[in-house]
Design a protein around this nucleic acid. Structure first.
Lengths: 198, 198
DNA sequence: CGAGCGCTTGATTGAGTTCAAAAATCGTGG
DNA sequence: CCACGATTTTTGAACTCAATCAAGCGCTCG
């Protein structure tokens, strides 16, 4: 059976037992998206959360000037979704796209509800995840309000050391809210000051 | 009885019935904070959500440079809390303070749980509020990533026309992530271009 | 192997900050 | 109710960080 990461995740993170797992696992479908392929387009209603079994996703918006702003990355064992769109059944404001060839588990509302019914600890976990999401967004706002380009980058590589290697630089720049050129200069400056990532 | 706003709110927004209201209303306490008084300090665990019955609150952080960054405002019929701190029982990263003399309803976990037990529609409403919060944070991140000072300000007065009049300008500037001087200039520029708020 | 994409580097520009000080507004005590 | 001190807002000038524009390099993948 594939989806080993997802199973392990449900057990170790969400506290779902082996037995519950069997009952839950009737449902989930997996799907492979190629590098560059879209999982969700602006204007579509988001019907799933995507659990990344293997690979790398990004979500992003495009503003009136045609510029991309990356909202989030998701590599192995992360979820990606447009919560607002899914919850309110509204067209999404953003895009979700595969940065690498990516295997995802499709998680729809029925799955969540079933899992929450079957496993109390899954329900708790889900609530916890929501709160964590808020905390994460809050922190990002704080960084954007106050921190310089360099601080934002340092925070990023600190928080997501694995992503730093896999995500193209211009996408990291977009996530940080700076231009690729600026990021290049920040990195140069850090290197000069003898900063070694990892 | 005071707390009329809170009652009306529960009925009209959260769909709580008159009958349920009587059972729920054993609990909530109200409290008055004077202008400038702190409702929550950094480092404290946040044990309540505050419903603003009358008045105006702000939440803000202070960064390493000693600069304030305003997270959120809350006037009548809004909630203010540090969700993360309350949920995870962690010391809060931020401050909550009264901008005007403010009457708040203190809402603790027991109240939420009781209300959710008694009223199904309250439970739904609460979930909805959480999702809305996420959507709101998301939007703010987008603005901070892409928009100029002017656009951010226009968005603000569009979203919170009432606050624009009651909140000191330097606080709005802090919320927008710009200096008071810059905001003053933005306003001047808008006035010159014959822009009339309201 | 060549075209395109991503990264770097340089020169220039510009939005917003900083510092300073004046003008306007607020609030509080007499 | 007025007056005075404090806070807020405005204005000006110099400066700074990051954006923009432009060009070149190197890699990859078709």
């Amino acid at each position: 059976m594939v989806l080993q990461n997802f199973k392990t995740y449900l057990q170790s993170r969400a506290g779902v037992t082996e037995e519950e797992l069997h009952r839950i696992f009737e449902i989930p479908q997996s799907k492979i998206f190629e590098k560059g392929e879209a999982l969700l387009n602006k204007g579509d209603v988001c019907h799933h959360a995507f659990f990344v079994e293997k690979g790398l996703l990004r979500s992003y918006t495009i503003d009136e000037m045609g510029k991309e702003h990356i909202i989030q990355f998701a590599s192995e064992n992360w979820f990606m979704s447009d919560r607002s769109s899914a919850y309110f059944n509204e067209p999404s404001d953003f895009y979700i796209e595969a940065i690498e060839d990516t295997t995802v588990v499709l998680i729809d509302k029925e799955f969540i509800e079933l899992a929450a019914t079957i496993s109390a600890s899954f329900r708790q976990y889900n609530e916890r995840a929501l709160q964590n999401h808020i905390r994460h967004l809050q922190k990002r706002i704080n960084l954007l309000l106050g921190a310089t380009a360099e601080k934002r980058y340092l925070d990023f590589i600190n928080l997501y050391p694995d992503l730093t290697l896999r995500v193209p630089q211009w996408m990291i720049a977009s996530y940080l809210g700076i231009t690729p050129e600026s990021l290049s200069r920040v990195r140069k400056e850090l290197a000069k000051r003898n900063f070694k990532p990892h």
